[in-house]
């Protein structure tokens, strides 16, 4: 594992009216690692994802990706740079097939224009085939090879989450951000998911993971950052975080709310 920093958040704050959903968070994610972002419900994890992926513009602070300032970029530009994500509340293109969903993930890497489409140029056809094969490959990669033609809306819940990952991977990202990928999964499904996440990491893609399931996170991560009430309260290797009194308090203190 190198020590090169891929994604860096500097003093990021996101306010909604009076609420600081993310409060002066600094974070560094190294190339090639599996980095977890944990914290009780409402800690600001999803908001942090939304800031990185350009859905929200932070109230203050900066996001650097590969040394470039991406704070002000729009979501589609962020994706173009090599950041992909999944959604906590599943956001598939429900009326389309699994394969089409993943093909859309390849959008920024598909090199075809409206004019090319109109005249069916050779270049456009090649681009379409490349997109098709990429989507097939990604479905195989996550184990959905048999669901190509299935409508996204008729997939079972667990497979929907997996399909979101395949779709994100199709954009050929440098980092993939997974927002609670094993929410609603049973033990065997989340085991498979852990294997998929290792495979993603081994293929050279950095992983930033938001997850509630502590056992899952501690087993899989190289590094863990803990948010509470929007602020960072702890960061380190899983063993350190597990025994941090502040983290224990944040989790225990919130237990009745969850």
């Amino acid at each position: 594992m190198g020590n090169e920093i891929l994604l860096k958040a500097e003093n990021v704050t996101m306010r909604f009216g009076g609420l600081k959903a993310v409060d002066q968070v600094d974070m560094e994610i190294k190339k090639g690692e599996i980095h977890a972002l944990i914290g009780p419900n409402g800690a600001g994890k999803t908001t942090f994802f939304n800031v990185i992926s350009g859905i929200y513009m932070p109230t203050s602070g900066q996001v650097l990706f590969d040394g470039q300032d991406i704070t002000k970029l729009k979501p589609h530009q962020v994706t173009q740079k090599g950041i992909a994500r999944t959604f906590q509340n599943i956001q598939l293109f429900e009326s389309m097939s699994a394969l089409e969903n993943v093909m859309i993930g390849h959008h920024t890497r598909t090199d075809s224009t409206v004019l090319g489409t109109m005249f069916h140029t050779k270049k456009m056809k090649e681009a379409e085939w490349k997109c098709y094969h990429k989507a097939e490959e990604m479905l195989e990669f996550v184990g959905l090879g048999d669901e190509k033609e299935t409508l996204a809306s008729s997939l079972p819940y667990g497979k929907k989450r997996i399909l979101e990952i395949a779709r994100a991977l199709a954009s050929e990202p440098k980092i993939i951000m997974l927002d609670e990928p094993c929410a609603g999964m049973n033990a065997s499904e989340s085991n498979d998911l852990a294997q998929t996440i290792y495979k993603i990491r081994d293929s050279g893609i950095t992983v930033l993971l938001v997850e509630h399931d502590m056992k899952f996170v501690m087993g899989i991560s190289d590094m863990v950052t803990v948010l509470d009430h929007g602020g960072k309260i702890c960061e380190g290797v899983p063993d350190k975080v597990k025994h941090d009194p502040q983290v224990i308090e944040a989790y225990l203190g919130k237990e009745d709310e969850e």
Partner: peptide
């Protein structure tokens, strides 16, 4: 023209925009 448009990158992007605009943006669709 419509047929070719629908079954192309543009057509998929259009349907993505209708289905889930936020996800579409996150997939790199303007």
């Amino acid at each position: 023209f419509c047929y070719r448009l629908i079954y192309s990158k543009t057509g998929r992007a259009m349907q993505a925009v209708r289905n889930a605009p936020i996800a579409a943006a996150a997939m790199g669709i303007n």
